[in-house]
């Protein structure tokens, strides 16, 4: 029987893909993501990492774009193109890791809050609602100020502040699924918590979680750049946010050094937009009610 089940799943995945591919926005986003990810992965092989070292620079600071330095140089004379390229890596890694953390917390809390009911649900909901209204950036700032600077801290700070939206979404979806009579039928057949969650709730909730993940990555990357811009990032690594932090600290605006300001910010916009477009396209595929409206 599993053969049939797999065949059907493959067919379903194929149908989902065809529908996704029929949306121009989603396709553009996906291609953009593929290119950016490839660039990030290739950076150590294609570029010379020694150019990131301040002690080994050869160019003058604040050099405008030229044929040697396509995007000019920063306040230390490092190539902005190289910095932005390498910044992609940290921004993506932090964004993805923080998202995984946040979606994990959100999904577990959301399902638990909807499934078990009673006081467990009441406490979890109260907890979620509290964190939902709490301005997440303020909390993330507080966390990353008191913890030692580093990649782990920034991932943690974003991850533990971004989950409530996921939790609420998952809770709503779980409640919707559990209100369906087939859950009652499963219970009447003798199924317990594990059976109901594993066989019915999770498969129905996961597509939504997946969509939510793509959208969460987008906001996690913005959050990373914001925290780094405020000087709360990992001081030993280059990210788009830390580049903009440096630009702000060293007066790129008053220097009129647009070449130092534009590329990192554009990087954030591209990645975030790509994830958002993918997420919205997926949402349209998986939520038929939205079809033809976006």
């Amino acid at each position: 029987m599993t053969a049939i089940a797999w065949q059907r799943r493959r067919a379903a995945a194929g149908a989902t893909w065809r529908e996704f591919a029929s949306q121009r926005g989603g396709l553009v986003g996906l291609v953009g993501l593929a290119v950016i990810t490839l660039l990030a992965l290739l950076a150590p092989w294609v570029t010379d990492a020694s150019g990131l070292d301040v002690t080994r620079v050869t160019a003058r600071p604040w050099e405008p774009p030229s044929s040697t330095y396509w995007l000019g140089t920063d306040h230390n004379g490092r190539s902005v193109l190289l910095l932005t390229w390498w910044g992609t890596r940290i921004s993506l890694v932090v964004g993805l890791a923080a998202t995984v953390l946040s979606v994990l917390i959100g999904t577990v809390v959301g399902i638990a809050a909807a499934h078990f009911g009673g006081w467990v649900s009441a406490v979890l909901m109260r907890f979620t609602d509290f964190f939902l209204v709490l301005p997440s950036l303020v909390l993330a700032i507080a966390l990353s100020t008191v913890l030692p600077r580093g990649l782990g801290t920034i991932v943690l700070a974003i991850g533990v502040t971004a989950w409530p939206a996921t939790a609420r979404l998952v809770r709503a979806q779980t409640l919707a699924v559990e209100a369906r009579p087939f859950i009652e039928r499963a219970r009447a057949l003798g199924g317990g918590h594990g059976h109901v969650i594993g066989r019915h709730v999770l498969p129905a909730v996961l597509p939504l979680v997946f969509v939510n993940t793509t959208l969460t990555v987008a906001s996690a990357i913005v959050a990373e750049s914001t925290l780094s811009f405020l000087g709360l990032g990992d001081p030993t690594r280059v990210s788009w946010g830390s580049l903009l932090h440096a630009a702000n600290m060293h007066g790129a605006v008053s220097q009129r050094a647009w070449w130092f300001l534009v590329p990192p910010g554009l990087g954030v916009v591209c990645v975030v937009l790509a994830f958002t477009l993918c997420g919205r396209a997926l949402e349209t595929v998986l939520n038929p009610r939205l079809k033809g409206e976006r």
Partner: peptide, 19 residues
Amino acid sequence: SALNPRHSVYEAVAEGLRI
């Protein structure tokens, strides 16, 4: 609504047996 839209007829009927 009493049948999970994602489960085939076989899975739906076998659900009780598996539980």
